[in-house]
Computed example of a mutant assay.
Amino acid sequence: MGVLNTIRQVLGLGVETDATREADPEDLFGMSTAYLSMEADLGFVPTGEAALCFADVDSTAFREARSDVEAVLEIGQEETGTAASFIEDSHGYSWVVLRDPDFEDLVTSVHFAADTLIEGGFGSRLLAALFSFDRDRTTAYWVYSFRRGAYYPFVPTGGRERDSALEFKLESNLDGELETEADTSYWYPMWPDGDAHPWG
């Protein structure tokens, strides 16, 4: 099975029948408190970056919805200083990458972007939201799967390897604060290119 098909099955277009609960963009606000536990209990600090991954649609309506996202984030940048950029990865998926030292502003901006696409009728195109943390040169991500309506941890270690033990520790520590994915087969590895973030 190719990487693109796996992404579609686990995070995107092929798992409606496998969804355990309906995704709710309000779930994203769970990170507003969970990040405090990441730092206080586990020593992971926010990197100041988060991202929203979605699949484009070649239609006028979608282009208008994407323009609405850009407008919302531009207003947000004026108010909070959260910088936003749009990039496309090597698999053809689009990302809204957000940067802000204030973690709660990041969470709010990710929510605004996701909610704007949902209001435009393109919630089914949302794949995942990622929040990144660092500890002693280890980067860990909390991934929110919109198709599963749940979070899961992802800790890449390079060379398409992951630290499963640390992922289980993260899940165990934050299970009471976040709606976590119980089926670990859906903890999809969003591999970065080299040492970069998954969004490049």
Rank of each mutant, 00 (worst) to 15 (best):
L4R: 14
N5L: 14
N5S: 14
R8W: 03
R8D: 11
G12A: 12
G12T: 07
G14H: 12
G14W: 02
T17Q: 12
T17G: 03
A19S: 15
D24F: 03
P25H: 12
E26A: 15
T33V: 14
S37C: 01
M38W: 00
V45E: 14
P46N: 08
A55C: 07
D56K: 09
I75F: 10
E79T: 09
E88N: 06
D89C: 03
S90I: 12
H91R: 04
S94N: 11
V97G: 05
R99W: 00
D100M: 02
D102A: 11
D102I: 09
S109C: 11
V110I: 14
H111Q: 07
T116D: 05
S124I: 04
L126N: 03
L127V: 06
L127C: 09
F131N: 03
S132K: 01
F133V: 00
R135Y: 06
W142Y: 15
V143N: 08
R148N: 12
R148L: 13
A150W: 10
P156D: 04
R160Q: 14
R160T: 05
E161I: 00
R162T: 04
E167T: 05
F168Q: 13
L170R: 02
S172T: 09
D175F: 08
D175R: 15
E177G: 06
E177Y: 08
E181P: 01
E181F: 05
D183C: 03
D183H: 10
S185K: 06
D193S: 13
G200D: 14
